[in-house]
Simulated assay, not measured.
Amino acid sequence: MLFAVAGLLGLLGILNTPHLAGRLLTVTACDLVLTLAGLFLPWDRFGANSPALLGLAGFAVLGLSTWSFGGVAAGTGPFLVLLYAWSALHFRRWILAAFTVPATLAYLVPLILTGQPPLVVSSAVVFLPAAVSVAFLIESQARHLRDDRMRLARIEQWRAAMISSLAHDVRAPLSTVHLVLEDLRETATGQTARMLDAAMRQTARIARLADGLLDIQRIDSSGQLKLDRARHSAAVLVKDALSYVREDADVSADIDPDLTVYVDKQRFEQILLNLVTNALRYGKPPVLVTFRRDGAIDRLEVRDHGAGIPEALRPRLFGQFAGEGPESVGLGLWIVRQLAAAHGGQAFAEAREPGVAMVITFPAAALSG
């Protein structure tokens, strides 16, 4: 882009100085060649520092341009600074230091050849050190950003590997536990049978949570999540999901018995259990779950009666790693938001007096599928 703009300005310069048309056409042709070289040459095959050759050629063309304009550097000086800035964004300091020689020649030689007065020539004493200093500052910041990006990439690779390994490693022993529980359940009776049923439900839930960990990885890598949506009774869905909540928890539900929703059952359970667990852990009972149709959307609401959440914090509650408490990882509500978005809905928090309501919307079943 830099060389393309320089070539265009060379053509425009012909309109103001037609007597220099030949020289300016030569400058424009050189800029065009460098533009095409920058766009189409396979620089990645030549090494990371190979594009620096464009910089060397660029300084030569800038010198030619200054000479073509009769030694007037007012137009080419800014391009010299921009060329140095581009170099600082992509190359190390030793290349910037090496560029001082061709940059100085590109600035001084045309001034000397065109017989400029000493005062104009001496401007290089101020201009060039300033350009080099700016370039070194840009290089320093760019280097820090590159290092930070590489460090974040390594952290992300470690996190993805950990999540994938954890999800897969949990499945094998969990399957064994579930089989043992099934065998024991066949002969159990009374309270023991009920306890084994609860244990089997929880192992099944842990298995789904392991799948959810893999979902996090899929959401991060592709931004999409495949859903198995079907029409379900909202009352049955909520009842089944709340069966995983401990029996002594103060959780109640108020669901329209005629409401049919179009959701992925497993993902819906994940959403509701995340919200109820958060309400019990960070809010104050009682926790009330409601599910109603509101025009074109189905609206799930999980409300606690705690101290509430400040208005300034509510917009970022559903962000990744947004948890601030010592026991909070900050992924639960982020997963909820991603699952809501996968359904075509939204997740947000609303103030209540007292407490806060976590609201999830879904497209109405009549308008979906």
Rank of each mutant, 00 (worst) to 15 (best):
A131I: 06
V180I: 10
A188V: 10
E156P: 04
L181V: 09
I216H: 06
R143V: 05
I138H: 03
G115P: 11
A160C: 07
R154W: 04
L128M: 13
S221L: 06
L196H: 03
T189I: 10
A124L: 05
T187K: 02
V101G: 08
F99Q: 10
A193I: 00
H232Y: 15
D220Y: 01
T114W: 01
L119S: 15
V177I: 07
R229H: 08
S221D: 07
Q191G: 07
K226H: 12
M195W: 04
H144C: 07
L166C: 12
L214F: 04
S122E: 03
L213D: 01
Q157E: 12
V121D: 04
E156W: 09
R201I: 00
Q116R: 14
R208L: 13
T104F: 12
G115I: 04
D148Y: 06
M200L: 15
L152D: 13
L209R: 11
A97R: 11
L213R: 00
L113G: 04
G223D: 08
R185S: 12
A230S: 15
R229M: 07
V132P: 08
D148M: 08
I155G: 01
A193R: 13
T192E: 13
V121E: 15
P129A: 04
G212L: 06
S122H: 09
D240V: 00
S222N: 11
H232A: 05
P173F: 04
E139D: 09
V134N: 01
Y107N: 13
H144F: 05
R208Y: 09
I216L: 05
L128P: 15
I206D: 01
A153L: 11
A210N: 05
Q116C: 00
R231N: 09
A234T: 06
M200W: 01
D215P: 00
R146A: 11
E182N: 09
V134M: 14
R231D: 12
V132F: 15
R171D: 12
H168R: 14
V132R: 08
R149G: 14
R218T: 10
A106L: 08
R149C: 01
V177N: 05
D240W: 00
I112Q: 03
V177Q: 07
R146D: 08
R159F: 03
R185I: 08
V121L: 07
Q217C: 00
I206T: 14
I112E: 09
F136E: 08
T114A: 03
A161D: 05
S123D: 10
R208A: 15
Y107C: 09
L225R: 14
A135L: 03
L96V: 06
S164W: 06
P118Y: 01
D220W: 10
A97Y: 14
Q191Y: 13
T100Q: 01
V109C: 02
Q116H: 00
L145H: 13
I112N: 06
Q217M: 00
L227C: 08
Q141T: 03
D228V: 07
F99H: 14
E156G: 12
P102I: 02
L145F: 09
L227I: 02
K226M: 06
P129Y: 09
R229Y: 02
Q157F: 13
H232T: 02
R218I: 02
S140C: 10
R151Y: 11
V109K: 07
A124F: 10
R143N: 11
L184I: 00
L108S: 03
S165T: 13
A98W: 07
A235T: 11
L111C: 04
M150R: 14
D215F: 00
G212Q: 09
T176D: 08
V134D: 02
